[in-house]
Amino acid sequence: MQKFFSNRRLIIILIAIIVSFSLISFSVSVRNKKSTPPLIQEFGNDVVGLFDRAVSYPANGLKSSVVGISDLLNTYQENQKLKKQVDKLAQVQVESDTVKNENKQLKKELKLNSTLTDYTSINASVLTRLPSGWLNQLVISKGSASGVKKNAPVMAGSGLIGRVIEVNKTNSKVELISTTNDSANRFAVQVTNSDGDIVNGLITGYDKTDNLLIMGQITSKKSLKKGDAVVTSGLGGTTPKGLNIGDVSKIEKGDYGLASKIYIKPAADLSDLTVVTIAQTLN
């Protein structure tokens, strides 16, 4: 037994534990600041990310070919369905282009340079996912060299999936919207009901058993229905306005009848992500 913890070993272990705890508290405290990560860590992450590409790109190729085969089997039915939608879409596209142009001209007239809805999008592929049960994080293949900034919202498919929490030169980390982290930055969102009334709030949590987002901090008592659309409100400045999140799934009266909780069914599938889009605000 005395061989286990001889004096020298014990001291080394104690020092290691103290160092690691101070590193943990240091990392947690600087996590939400703009300037992180430190330069050395950023460089190290870039080097590691470079090697990760050699492993993840072949693996992703394999995955997409498997998915491709199963897609092929459903092609006929899907084609029939999609044909019907395409005609409608072309019309909507033309209309939206005209409206966008008009909007641009009107903004120019008013001398508005940028509003809450303006953003540039950067596409990136997902390199890897953190092997852990509760920290839902991804590493994506674009970094500050491509113009990614900290706190930018990240979209995939049809909806919002999370936020950039760390930017290196050539890769960055994304914290998914389903995170259980207490200190994560929250999204400001709004629900529009059928009468056109707007209810503002924040995404405050995630219901793991039903895969639903929880919206709290609700500002008004206007009535909402199942299926009302939820989008980002652009309040707070880091997130552009109008990014799709999902729709209302159920509404629950909160404790003591004070505030209600709204459960949102997310539009994006958080467990199957290969390509993501970073929506970068212009200012």
Binding site: K3, F4, I13, A16, I17, V19, S20, F21, S22, L23, I24, F26, S27, V28, R31, P37, Q41, G44, N45, V48, G49, D52, T128, L130, P131, S132, L135, Q137, V139, I165, E166, K173
Partner: peptide, 27 residues
Amino acid sequence: LAFDSYYTGILGVYMILLPLIVYLTKI
């Protein structure tokens, strides 16, 4: 250390756990 830095961004977790486990297993 690489694991902490690249995957989680919280330094000091795997950095201490992995060597400690290796040390105990060696015993």
